[in-house]
Amino acid sequence: MSKNIRIIYLYLVSFIALGMIVIGFITTVNSVSSYFFPIVNYYSYYGEDSYNYDEEIAIRTRNAKKESIKNAISSFTVIAIGTPLFIYHWKKIQIERKEEV
C-alpha cells in the first residue's frame, strides 16, 4: 500500500511540476512580449491640451513595462522551481521502473 502511495505521489508531483514549467514558460513569453509591446490604458480627461499629457503617458508606459518585468520574474521563478522538481521526480520514476524490470 505504501508503495502505491509513493507511486501516486511521484506521478502527481511530476504532473504538477510539468504544469508549472509549461505555464511558467507561457507566462514568461507573455510578460516579455508585454514589455516590448506595452498596453497603456490612459485617456486624458482634459484632452491633448492637458498640461502634462505626454509625461503622464510616458510614466504609465514605464509602469506597464515595470509590471511586465515583475510578471516575467515571478513566472521565471515558477520555471526555476518546477524544472528541478520535475527532473528529480521523473528520474525517480525511471529508476524505480528500471529496478522493477
Binding site: 507561457i26 513569453v29 507573455n30 512580449s33 508585454s34 509591446f37 506595452p38 498596453i39 497603456v40
Partner: peptide, 13 residues
C-alpha cells in the same frame, strides 16, 4: 497602439 500591442502580445502568447 494599445489595440495593436494587445493583439501582438496575444498572438505571441
Amino acid at each position: 497602439k494599445n489595440n495593436d500591442n494587445e493583439m501582438i502580445v496575444n498572438m505571441i502568447t
